[in-house]
Structures are given as structure tokens and as C-alpha cells.
Design a binder for these strands. Sequence first.
DNA 1: GTTTTTCTGTAGCGAGCGATACAGAAAGCG
DNA 2: CGCTTTCTGTATCGCTCGCTACAGAAAAAC
Lengths: 231, 231
Amino acid sequence: MATKETKRRGRPRSFDRETALEQAMRSFWEQGYEATSISDLTRTMGISAPSLYAAFGDKRALFGEVVTEYGRVYGGFLSRAVAEEPTARRGVERALREAAAEYTLPGRPRGCLVISAALNTAPASAEVAESLREMRLANVRDIQRAIAADVASGALPATTDAAALAHYVGAVMQGMSQQARDGADRATLEAIAELAMRAWPRTAGEKRTGGGEGEGVREKRKKETGPRPGA
Amino acid sequence: MATKETKRRGRPRSFDRETALEQAMRSFWEQGYEATSISDLTRTMGISAPSLYAAFGDKRALFGEVVTEYGRVYGGFLSRAVAEEPTARRGVERALREAAAEYTLPGRPRGCLVISAALNTAPASAEVAESLREMRLANVRDIQRAIAADVASGALPATTDAAALAHYVGAVMQGMSQQARDGADRATLEAIAELAMRAWPRTAGEKRTGGGEGEGVREKRKKETGPRPGA
DNA sequence: GTTTTTCTGTAGCGAGCGATACAGAAAGCG
DNA sequence: CGCTTTCTGTATCGCTCGCTACAGAAAAAC
């Protein structure tokens, strides 16, 4: 990453670009894309409108950078969990547990930016809404792929509907994000996550309670896909 | 309900108020409260702005009427299911199944208005967002009450955490609404609903598959609470 | 008929939106 | 030192927002 070229000419920028981007992210994360105005942004970023436009282009481009940064720093836990854990079950279990924590961490907006920042958009912002929607769908596909792999390997019953199970997990994560925004605390979300995992398919000779495994795949699975934010 | 008083004086209204309200509901349902402008409304309702303000007050009051009408016609299925079915399990099962259908019915906006119409609001619309949030919380409390009753009657294990289970159901419904808005079809939502019910607590001697009952309460439960929309 | 009441359409209010023109300030380069 | 380049602050732009003043139209009341 070439962040700083040799030495730029002209008057140097008087604010820290990354800090400003972080502040913009907080605003979009809290209020959503459309409800966050340019004057909201200039106030929280501590810069004037022309500086904002010079540094980031326009509102949509700024939001694009925000989403990228969000995925890199905050929203990648789902892809990471699914990619790093040896089975889909452990990946999803971990992702749901981490979501309960991430969505309620003090000192940052609640819930997931990708899930909640571009709902209820006017037609003018349809593109933005569509891009986040596609990120959500990509995450569901990620989960689905891991599940299908475990069905193929025998770690999950052959009768498992991978698409349905993946959509179920996606729905639960979206519901957790909304509940977090509605005020649910971490313990409540963790209880939801734990309950959600009770719907996970069990192989033939599997006990109900205890951290039942029942997988066939043992070695760490490592995907080539990078982390992807949200759910 | 006194809809039509004797004979009103003055020039009669040139449009049907209920039809206009229905059109307004569609707009708010599709785009949400803030993203729906007055000119959107006047266009879809087929009336001019002064007529709208004369008939409904202002935008917020119109939305209030819309929400009431929505709850009466479309969103009451959860309260109804929970109130009419003999056990919490059957009530929730029915509500989730109906949600899968309701959220994807052709010819109407997808998902639930109460869940999705006032997310990402600017501070100016905080009151509206808060009112819908309270409706969602009230629905969770409805579910929780039914669950707690079944725990008390022995239809559910004494170890059941009624609040956690109710929040789980609420999260699943909110997730289903979002998935519907993201394009999921009815079959996908029904699969989510069915999977979600596999997390339902089982009493001691309960079989896994088949429409297992295992309740203690047999007679229809009839609550005094009226239907309440959304989830 | 005339009067009174209520609704309708035009036209426009102040405010905020996203975005910018412009001139001055602050740096490197020669 | 100029000269060029880039950023900053002021002061807007045109547009849409929610909302309404006003005059005319259409009904009941007299």
C-alpha cells in the first residue's frame, strides 16, 4: 500500500485523512447513508465542505471508502470465522458469538453498518442500497459455501439444505443487528446466538447438549477469499 | 366507529380518504418514512398537497394513521397467532409461517412496515423511529408473555429463559423481513421459519421430528389484547 | 337566489440539502 | 525572491424538502 508518496507539492492538508474517515464512518454507522447530511459530516469530521469534497470526492465516494474501511476494521469477523474454523458449524457459532459482542461494544455505534446503513433509501440512493445488499448476499453465499463443503465431506447430513441454513444464519445475524439497535444488550444477543445454534443439523449419533462436534473435517480450512464485512 | 356523520357542509372531498391512505401506506412501506417525500405522496395518492394536509394533518400524523391501518389490516398476524393458539410454540410456529407468506405476497411491498419503515432516521424523525421501536418491543413482550405462561403451566421446561426465547423469535422475524426485502422468496423464508423452530425447547420425553406437541395447555387461550402489528 | 362552509389548485414560503466558485493561505520548486 | 501547486474558509449555487397563503369552486343552509 503506497499511502505516502515522496513529498507532495502545495499546501499540505491540515487534517488527518484517516481520522476524518473514521469520524465519517461513525456518522454513517449511527444514522445511515441518507440521514447523514454533508453538514453532519463536516461537523463531526471537523473540516469544511470544500475540504471534504477535495479529499473524498462526493458523499457517495466517501461512503464507499467508509464501507471499505468498515469491512477492514470492524465487519470482517464473519468471513474470518467461516474461513478460519475447521467446520461450518464452528465458524457460524463463532461468528454469531462475535456478532453479539461486536454489535454491542461500548464506544461505537450498535449493530452492523452493512446491515443497517442503507435501508429505506429514496430512489436517488438506490445504487448505494444495492451495493450493501450485494455485500449481504455475498456473506450468505460465503456461509452457504462452507455448509455445502461440510455436507460434501459428511460433517453435515446429506439432507441438509445448505442454502436454507445459510439464509437462516444470515437472518439471525440481521435480526441480532436490529435488536442491538433497538437496545438489546450483549447478554441478550449471546442468548439469541446460542438459541440459534440449537437449530443446527445434527448427524445421526449426535448428543444434544455439550459442545457437540460431529465433524469430519479436522484440519484448518483456509480460504483464499479475503475478509468481507457485515452480514 | 362513526365514519360518516349526518351530512357535512361545504364542498365535499373529491377523493376517497381510505384509498388515499392505502396508497400512502404503500409508499411508506416501500421507501420508509423519511425517504418518502410529500411530493411522492401527493403523486401516488393522486391529490394535491393542500388536500393532503387538510385531510391528514401533516406528514407525521399521516404516517401515524398509516401505521394504525397497517396494524389493522396487515401486521396483526403475530399478535393474533400468539393470542389464538393454545401454546406459545404453536403461536410462534404459526406466526413465523404466516410471516414467510405475508412478507413475500405479490402485489404489495415486501417485509414488514413496522420493522423497516423508520430505520436510519435523522434526529428530526427520532420520535417516529421511537414509536415503531416500541411497537417492536411490545411484540417481543407479547411473545415473552405467552412463553412464560407455558413455562408456568409446564408446557415448556422450567429452565426456559422466556425473555431470551422471545428475543430470539423477534430477531428471526426481523431477519426474515430483511431477507424478504433483499429478495428472498417465500420458500426461502419458510425454510428459515422451519429451521428457527428447531431451536424451540423440548420437554423431557419429546421426539425430534414430526409436528411434536408436548403441551400441557389444551383449551384455546384467548387474550384480551387486540392485534398488534409487526415484529 | 344569497350566505356560509369546506375543499381544490396554483404558487410560493423559509430551510436544509448536496455540491462549488472564488480568493486567499501555505507549502515546494526554480 | 517569484511561480506553481494545493488546500482552506466564506459565501453561495440550484434544488428539494415539509408546509401553507390565497383565491376560486362546490356543496349545504338560509
